[in-house]
């Protein structure tokens, strides 16, 4: 039996060693996460992770602080029982700067009415430099009876705007969408 006991003890030692290896490899699996990140950083495998470059990528280089523009806001109604006006008549901004303007619209009737806003620009060539990211004019607007709604337009003026343009007028005209009110319930 002593030979057997010796074999058993040596088996137990082996079991412990191999268990330690297995546990170590379990930990190694987690260590791979920082390891891979470090390797990528040191070897420059992921450029965005390079120190310094991340900040550079995040900062907005497109705002042209040397120029100041006046953007005027205008609003018109065509065949609609609504009132419609911007919250400010004009703003002073730099080209490339993200700007938001809010328009307020009120339905004066006691039935739902649907309208569609159509923009126009003065001078007309400014239109192609006027980049709207979000606008109430992208979709039809349905207002319930007597509803008041504030609607944003978010825009950027392209810095490539010609130098002789210093004032841009953004004019919206709301048109009634005929026949839309029958399905206005879902709008």
């Amino acid at each position: 039996m002593s030979a057997l006991a010796a074999a058993s003890a040596s088996n137990r030692r082996m079991l412990k060693k191999l268990l330690v290896v297995a546990l170590g490899m379990f930990g190694f699996g987690f260590a791979l996460v920082p390891l891979y990140n470090k390797v990528c950083e040191v070897a420059g495998l992921r450029e965005l992770w390079q120190p310094g470059q991340a900040d550079a990528a995040a900062s907005n280089t497109q705002v042209d602080l040397t120029r100041t523009l006046t953007v005027e806001f205008d609003s018109n109604i065509r065949m609609l029982p609504w009132t419609f006006k911007p919250m400010a008549s004009s703003v002073e901004i730099h080209p490339g700067e993200l700007t938001q303007m809010v328009y307020e619209v009120r339905n004066t009737l006691d039935v739902p009415v649907t309208g569609q806003a159509v923009p126009s620009y003065g001078p007309r060539l400014a239109g192609q430099y006027f980049r709207k990211l979000e606008c109430f004019c992208f979709t039809q607007q349905t207002l319930a009876a007597g509803e008041v709604r504030q609607m944003p337009v978010v825009f950027v003026i392209d810095p490539k705007l010609p130098n002789d343009v210093n004032t841009i007028t953004l004019s919206y005209t709301f048109f009634r969408v005929e026949g839309a009110n029958v399905k206005a319930g879902k709008g």
Partner: peptide, 14 residues
């Protein structure tokens, strides 16, 4: 197996 099975266990634990 002893070397890589625990790594799989780690991955799926994550």
């Amino acid at each position: 197996l002893i070397a890589v099975m625990p790594v799989l266990a780690g991955a799926i634990t994550m």
